[in-house]
Simulated assay, not measured.
Amino acid sequence: MLSVATWNINSVRLRMPIVERFLKEEAPDVLCLQEIKCQEDQFPYKAFEALGYDQIAVHGQKGYHGVATVSRVPLREFSRHDWQDNGEARHVGIELPDHQGMVVENVYVPAGGDIPDREQNVKFGQKLDFLERMTRWADKVDRPTLIVGDFNIAPLESDVWNHKQLLKVVSHTPVEVDTLQRFKDAHGWTDIGREHIHDPERYYSWWSYRSKDWKVNDRGRRLDHMWASPQLAAQSTRHWLREDARDWEKPSDHIPLITEFDI
Rank of each mutant, 00 (worst) to 15 (best):
G188L: 05
V177F: 09
Q235S: 14
E132C: 02
V19Q: 00
F183G: 05
Q235E: 13
F130P: 05
Q61A: 06
A233D: 11
A111N: 04
Q39P: 00
D224M: 15
K215L: 15
L23V: 00
T237K: 12
P256D: 04
N152K: 11
V141Q: 06
P200C: 12
S211G: 06
L166T: 11
R219E: 14
S252Q: 02
L167I: 13
V58I: 05
H81C: 13
E20I: 00
D199S: 13
N121F: 04
I258H: 01
G60K: 06
Q100I: 02
H239S: 05
T259V: 08
E201L: 14
Q34D: 00
Q231G: 14
N217I: 15
W189Q: 10
S3K: 03
N86K: 13
N86G: 12
G63Y: 10
E132A: 09
V109N: 04
R210K: 11
L131E: 03
D244V: 12
W83K: 02
R13M: 08
Q231C: 13
S158G: 11
K123W: 08
D98N: 12
D29R: 01
D178E: 15
V177T: 12
L232R: 12
L23T: 00
G188P: 13
H239Y: 06
W189F: 15
N152L: 08
K140V: 08
N217Q: 15
V177Q: 10
M16T: 04
